[in-house]
């Protein structure tokens, strides 16, 4: 009964077929974002393993173009395609994350200027902001 309640029936109506198409688009976008994550991760590993700790200029340009095009274009398409519940969850997660960043970075900066802590680390701040955004998003998705 529960699966009938939520999921697909044996003879899918027009609404269920539209829902399948919408879900397929959603997971296609997610796959694109995951592929981008893998490319970025691979690049970071390559930088780490490189004796100079840097990338050839042409690689740097290529990875930047790919990143901006896929994440920028993908995010634009994602927000166009999702429904209002998904949009609200994303906007709340994004708002809390940017507020987290706006609070933590200046606090860290002034403590650094006071000689109390080391200089703000932008990679740490970036990763922490993404973690906060993901945590809020999944809390909104999974709360009972």
């Amino acid at each position: 009964m529960a699966s009938r309640e939520a999921g697909m029936t044996e003879h899918a109506g027009p609404g269920e077929r539209a829902e399948v198409a919408r879900r397929n688009r959603f997971w296609l976008m997610m796959s694109g974002f995951m592929l981008l994550g893998a490319v970025i991760g691979g690049t970071l590993v390559a930088i780490e393993k490189s004796p100079s700790g840097s990338l050839p200029a042409i690689w740097a340009i290529a990875i930047t173009v790919i990143f901006v095009a896929v994440l920028g274009g993908g995010t634009w398409y994602f927000y166009r395609d999702i429904d209002e519940v998904e949009r609200q969850d994303n906007l709340i997660a994004g708002t809390i994350a940017i507020n987290f960043y706006a609070l933590v970075y200046p606090a860290w900066f002034f403590l650094w200027k006071g000689g109390l802590v080391r200089e703000p680390d932008h990679e740490t701040l970036f990763v922490a902001t993404v973690i906060v955004m993901s945590a809020v998003y999944f809390w909104k998705k999974l709360r009972p």
């Binding site: 009938r4 309640e5 939520a6 999921g7 697909m8 029936t9 899918a12 109506g13 027009p14 609404g15 269920e16 077929r17 539209a18 829902e19 399948v20 919408r22 429904d83």
Partner: peptide, 10 residues
């Protein structure tokens, strides 16, 4: 189903 209604509503 919820999926049917969702699809009809977009």
């Amino acid at each position: 189903s919820q999926a049917e209604l969702g699809g009809r509503l977009g």
